[in-house]
């Protein structure tokens, strides 16, 4: 168990009366790239947001690096959890990077300032040190020459690459991507996927919600197909894409491939 980066058991989540996650079990090993596919509304984003406690869960357990996320044991009985103190939740989130569909860069800060924000205000890094680190990260995502540009002066693909650098600046052990290329013009998708591919090669553990089946096929170690709040099928990409066992997987793949 301790050699897993992420482990989820029976995760359930309701919005009002609607159960959008119905008992999710998942294990992610170090360095693994897991792609999550599935139709709109199947709960992919919600699941990802539970992993860094942006959403509370109604039942189940999530561990990242062996530590229970968002909750702690409360009282004598095994079954009851209580939400952690905000400070502890924040400490846990530091090591879980998240990249959003619509980037969510801070528009009043330049690219380099966006990347520095976490290291300076959360980790308390010295300004000069943080700036050096941020420049290196921008260089890594191919944006060394855009450091002083504001998000509005960058293309969508460039903004998303800055967002990836911002997440990496916290030195995460796990990166979550929620449809990182869905808001991009088609010609800009490649540059972002390229950065993600490099990241995967460097050994980063990644969970990627995506509609880019080509990327999933090429980069993923494992693909899971979600529908109606449950994992319907999981497997190696070459298996899942060519011989889906489940009817619903077949139906979904026939619409997107």
């Amino acid at each position: 168990m301790t050699d897993l980066v992420l482990r989820a058991r029976g995760v359930r989540k309701k919005f009002g009366d609607i159960e959008v996650l119905r008992g999710i079990d998942l294990e992610v090993r170090p360095g693994e790239v897991l792609c999550v596919i599935g139709p709109s509304g199947s709960g992919k984003s919600t699941l990802l947001r539970c992993f860094n406690h942006l959403e509370r869960i109604d039942a189940g357990r999530i561990w990242v690096n062996g530590e229970l996320i968002g909750y702690e044991q409360h009282g004598a009985s095994e079954g009851t959890l209580r939400e952690r103190r905000p400070r502890d939740v924040r400490r846990q989130r530091e090591r879980i990077g998240m990249v959003f569909q619509r980037f969510h860069l801070f528009p009043h800060r330049t690219a380099v300032q966006n990347v520095m924000e976490g290291p300076v205000t959360v980790k308390g890094l010295k300004w000069a040190h943080a700036q050096r680190q941020a420049s290196e990260l921008l260089d890594r995502v191919g944006l060394a020459d855009r450091a002083d540009h504001y998000p509005a002066q960058l293309s969508g693909g460039q903004q998303q690459r800055v967002a990836i650098a911002r997440a990496l600046a916290m030195e995460p052990t796990l990166m979550l991507f929620d449809e990182p290329t869905s808001a991009l013009d088609p010609e800009l998708v490649g540059e972002v996927l390229g950065v993600m591919r490099d990241l995967a090669r460097s050994g980063m553990t990644m969970i990627v919600v995506t509609h880019e089946m080509g990327f999933a096929r090429e980069v993923a170690d494992r693909v899971i197909f979600m529908d109606e709040g449950a994992v319907v099928e999981a497997g190696r990409p070459d298996e899942l894409f060519t011989q889906p066992r489940h009817e619903r997987t077949q139906a979904f793949l026939s619409t997107v491939l």
Binding site: N52, L54, P86, R87, R90, R91, R93, E94, I96, G97, M98, F100, R102, H104, L105, F106, E117, G118, T121, V122, A163, R166, A167, A169, M170
Partner: peptide, 12 residues
């Protein structure tokens, strides 16, 4: 999303 971006890097 701005708040969530801040939360995701562990800001208070």
């Amino acid at each position: 999303g701005q708040r969530e971006a801040g939360e995701s890097i562990g800001m208070s």
